[in-house]
């Protein structure tokens, strides 16, 4: 941060309200202190993730004998060995499993929820409001409730442990939020646009796919990034429903936790790799992330 930013930016100053010179001086001093406090907090928030990154880059012996912050004085400890070992250990297959679970789930949730959201927003049918209240109710249902029954169901169907089983579970529990978010967005689309399309003789499917869906791109982007992150970051569902050969990264990492001390060279790079893609997505699409959160803060 440059010193040029060390100037308090008060809304009231901008709006030209006259204040006494003394009050301004106090504001400036307080502003400087505020900057320092905020910088300290930001460092505090960054430190854990930064620490993980540094640990993942240090030699195993260095990690067992000293703290990661010693890197400042001994930069020679840096190595990519941990990452090489991780990739050699078969961690890559769990990376692919994560993608195979996350991408289809996200697409399915968007597609199914968009259809349902359209019906809730633009088709009048008996019991519509009541059904939508059920969806809102389902927003907060803990997934724990379904673990045992669905495990039994999957056993009967013979798909327990497979990737489709994990995907199906995620899709179902992603739907309430997705329907809620999209229905609210769809309902805000001007009625005239839809009426005009109907006048032109377009059917419901055509209106849905050519008018509503394209207009809803921002909402769909928000939903997509949320859904992607939830599934990418899930541990519990994978723990119950994914076999070892189909396990995503979170479960693969969890199985290394039992020997925490001796597995630092796998855990640290693994955890960092697993959060790399979410972080990239987050920084690239943070606008949609924030919008989705504000629009769907019921969950």
């Amino acid at each position: 941060m440059t010193t040029a930013t060390l100037e308090p930016k008060h809304a009231r100053d901008r709006e030209g309200i006259q204040r006494s010179p003394l009050a301004r001086i106090i504001d400036r001093l307080g502003g400087g202190l505020l900057q320092v406090v905020v910088i300290v907090i930001a460092l505090f928030w960054l430190m854990p993730t930064l620490g993980l990154f540094v640990v993942s880059l240090r030699e195993q012996e260095a990690n067992t004998s000293s703290g990661w912050w010693t890197l400042l004085t001994q930069p020679a400890q840096i190595t990519l060995d941990n990452y090489a070992n991780l990739l050699a250990s078969g961690f890559t297959s769990s990376f692919w499993n994560t993608i195979l679970i996350t991408v289809p789930t996200t697409l399915l949730v968007i597609g199914i929820a968009a259809m349902a959201g359209y019906a809730f927003a633009w088709i009048e049918f008996p019991g519509r409001d009541a059904l939508f209240l059920v969806v809102i109710g389902l927003l907060v249902v803990p997934i724990q409730i379904a673990l045992i029954p669905i495990a039994g169901l999957y056993g009967t169907l013979g798909i327990f442990g497979s990737i489709p089983a994990v995907v199906l579970f995620h899709v179902a529990f992603g739907l309430p939020f997705a329907i809620f978010l999209l229905r609210n967005f769809f309902a805000g689309i001007p009625r005239e646009l839809l009426e005009a399309a109907r006048m032109d003789g377009a059917g419901e499917w055509k209106i849905f796919s050519t008018v509503v869906f394209p207009l809803a791109k921002p909402a769909i982007a928000s939903l997509g990034i949320f859904q992607f992150l939830w599934v990418w970051n899930d541990l519990l569902v994978a723990l119950v429903f994914a076999d070892t050969e189909n396990q995503p990264m979170t479960k693969a990492l969890q199985s290394q936790m039992r020997q925490f001390q001796s597995n630092v060279d796998i855990l640290a790079p693994g955890a960092f790799l697993s959060l790399l893609i979410p972080l990239i997505l987050f920084f690239a699409f943070q606008r949609y992330f924030v919008q989705g959160m504000l629009a769907g803060s019921v969950k």
């Binding site: 854990p48 993730t49 990661w68």
Partner: peptide, 16 residues
């Protein structure tokens, strides 16, 4: 930022 990170990874972070 931590919201984008899995709780699993956060857990590993805080174990350190």
């Amino acid at each position: 930022m931590p919201m984008a990170v899995s709780l699993m990874a956060s857990g590993v972070i805080f174990r350190f």
